[in-house]
Nucleic acid binder design. Structure first.
Lengths: 238, 238
DNA sequence: CGCAGCGTTGACAACCTTCAAATTTGGTGG
DNA sequence: CCACCAAATTTGAAGGTTGTCAACGCTGCG
């Protein structure tokens, strides 16, 4: 089966049939987690490696004043904490946003996988580099763009990521978030997130309704958002 | 010789004498680079692994409007692009801020190092995880704190990092930046960076003068900035 | 001296937050 | 189907934070 994971990693690496079988076997035992459920909390010891198969999850950090900042959105095919075993404590939390199907892989299994297959190792490594690049882009977004362009840019990123995962439908992708949660991603107030969404819709750039984001004119959105997907390192054409 | 690099990595790993010798040998051939010099540019192919021995460098991204966002500050003992060989293009730029002494290590040397010494491998891995944690904290800073606390928090982070490197003097550390460059780190205008610095000084929290940052009362600064160094994963006491 | 770069200040405008309230939506039970 | 309720979204108004523009002062250096 071609899973979002395989689609994504195939951007970086040509897998052998063996590799594909290994990846498929690895992801056979899934469990379902409800929305808004904590997976692991800041301060906890790192647990198993998690892989999102379905739904939307996030990394976030809670602040003393009760607010939180989401620092990563995890879509199907994304790994969490692939590497974090080396640290003794989690420095951020991980939780679901929507209903999720998740695979939990014992750390030992990942390590032996790394010894067995160089191409899978390379692919996982690549994936963590892309995650880092995304994080840097979020920082640029927050630091140097105002809320409307920041949000538009974010939506462009997500469209690309969903496309790679094979989960976009044309210029539409699912985003099972409330505006409040979206505002935690953007680092703005809920009220302002709402106004920003409205202004983008009125400008004909994107709409976000009923858990879906749609681009009426993707090329224009890319241009307005100054979105250059290079940083996502999608080498394969689709 | 106990270099900033060794001091830093010793936070995570106990090195054997062999490891220490290897690290020392690796960093023997340095070259000096002037201030405000590009090391590698967005879009370039990844080059050798670079290690900052002296001075201050940064990762940054330039924007169409001519502004830039600095997404990482690199101090002595920090690696650049340890892992980036796997990508075909740089998605950000790297440049010096002050005069720097830099070591350039051929990628092959790093790879063989990784095969030779598990403890060094582990230490390098740990270092990249800390870099990621720092990046996440910058995003939280930018997303959920206003300029004054954001800046204070940043200074706290840098104090800790300079201490680990053995380059802090009490509650003071060097920061060879103009306010303009600092504003590129903070993601605010120069004018606002200036006002923020003044208000922090007037509040008796930090001063930034003549290229040095000084904390009159570090404990209070930590508290006000909501700074919890946990995310820097400094396991060793000092 | 004169210049250039950097730091500082004031005034005003734009962006964003907060608070409060109204409206809509979606789900539940009658 | 409707009433009801909780959650989510939307709107207005006021105030705080930050950006922009412009001017001025300081400092180091040729």
């Amino acid at each position: 089966m071609i899973t979002p994971l395989i689609r994504k990693l195939s951007q970086a690496v040509d897998f052998s049939d063996d590799d594909l079988a290994t990846l498929t076997r690895l992801t056979s035992r899934q469990r379902t987690v409800g929305p808004r459920t904590a997976l692991i909390h800041e301060g906890d010891r790192p647990g198993p490696v998690r892989l999102i198969m379905k739904g939307l999850a996030c990394r976030y950090q809670s602040l003393p004043d009760g607010s939180r900042q989401i620092v990563a959105l995890l879509i199907p095919g994304d790994f969490c904490d692939l590497h974090v075993a080396i640290l003794d404590r989690m420095d951020h939390s991980l939780g679901t946003l929507s209903n999720c199907d998740i695979v939990e892989i014992p750390r030992a299994a990942v390590l032996s996988l790394i010894e067995t297959s160089p191409s899978i190792t390379r692919a996982l490594w690549w994936a963590t580099l892309v995650d880092e690049a995304i994080l840097r882009n979020w920082l640029v977004n927050k630091g140097r763009r105002q809320a409307d362009l920041q949000l538009l840019n974010l939506f462009c990123e997500l469209l690309c990521r969903y496309e790679v995962a094979g989960l976009a439908q044309g210029d539409t992708f699912p985003l099972p978030l409330t505006q409040e949660e979206l505002s935690d991603v953007m680092g703005v107030s809920v009220v302002h997130a709402n106004r920003t969404l409205n202004s983008l819709r009125e400008a004909g750039l994107v709409t976000f309704e009923k858990g879906s984001v749609t681009f009426p004119d993707r090329a224009r959105a890319y241009e307005v958002a100054e979105f250059d997907p290079t940083y996502l390192h999608l080498t394969r054409r689709r």
